[in-house]
């Protein structure tokens, strides 16, 4: 498999704090990859650097054969890389449908086609009944679904999800996992940051562990579960005690 998204030696410091210290990850096309690590290990910072929200001090980001290091967020999105945020960010004073259409802006398609696609995606995540409501009136879980849907409307090749299961109830977590699997089966590539180990282990084919701004190990979930460095650095006894999902 070829890597569709790759970072090399990314360094990023905020004042005296070295958030990323040579972080290198690789995401193969058509896979669901996970990115885990303790709080403060640099996961969200790496997302921000990849998507242009933060500038890298050093290193490179490669996406679909091009170097996109420090490209502006709109250019990264136009290149085919969409993302969601740890704390859901929607447009509260636009309607749910208008939220969808913001992301469809760069597509020069007929208005009707765009609206239809937006409605189809809202139906896909189960909130099409709320299309005419202000997005600010949605519940937190519904906002998570809306954020996933409006990233999809522009049909990005790779989607970065920052804690998609964070703060949502177990039923909704299962729904989100189902939708991710379904989209992946249609060819979408995912990179997921998540603290919910059950969610990550059950969904991802490859997991990279970050610690102190650098990748310490990368491999399939079974390997991550048993890697001593991971257990020492992050997972600890809890994971050892967990029963495998299948």
């Amino acid at each position: 498999m070829t890597a569709v998204l790759r970072t090399e030696g990314i360094k990023k410091a905020y004042g005296g704090v070295q958030a990323l210290n040579g972080a290198g990850i690789s995401v193969d096309e058509g896979t669901i990859a996970g990115l885990i690590g303790p709080n403060g290990s640099g996961k969200t910072t790496l997302f921000n650097v990849i998507t242009g929200y933060d500038r890298a001090d050093e290193g490179q980001v490669h996406f679909a054969g091009q170097v996109i290091t420090n490209a502006a967020p709109d250019k990264v999105f136009a290149a085919g890389l969409g993302r969601t945020f740890q704390l859901t960010r929607i447009f509260p004073r636009l309607t749910v449908l208008e939220n969808m259409l913001v992301a469809a802006q760069h597509k020069r398609q007929q208005r009707h086609t765009v609206r239809q696609r937006a409605m189809d995606l809202l139906e896909f995540v189960g909130i099409d009944r709320h299309a005419g409501l202000l997005a600010g009136s949605l519940s937190y879980g519904q906002r998570k679904l809306l954020e996933l849907a409006y990233v999809l409307v522009a049909d990005p090749a790779v989607i970065l999800l920052d804690e998609p299961a964070g703060g949502v109830n177990p039923t909704l977590i299962n729904l989100i996992a189902d939708r991710i699997r379904e989209l992946n089966s249609q060819g979408k590539t995912f990179l997921i940051v998540e603290h919910n180990m059950e969610f990550v282990m059950g969904l991802c084919s490859t997991i990279t562990v970050l610690e102190s701004g650098a990748a310490v190990v990368s491999g399939p979930p079974e390997m991550i579960r048993s890697d001593k460095r991971v257990l020492d650095a992050y997972l600890g006894a809890d994971l050892e005690e967990e029963e495998p999902d299948e």
Binding site: E123, F124, G126, R129, G141, T171
Partner: peptide, 18 residues
């Protein structure tokens, strides 16, 4: 309308977090 999607969203809407 959307299978489990709607139910999940409803559950979310009804939840204290929501």
């Amino acid at each position: 309308t959307a299978g489990s999607a709607g139910g999940a969203a409803a559950a979310s809407a009804a939840s204290p977090a929501g």
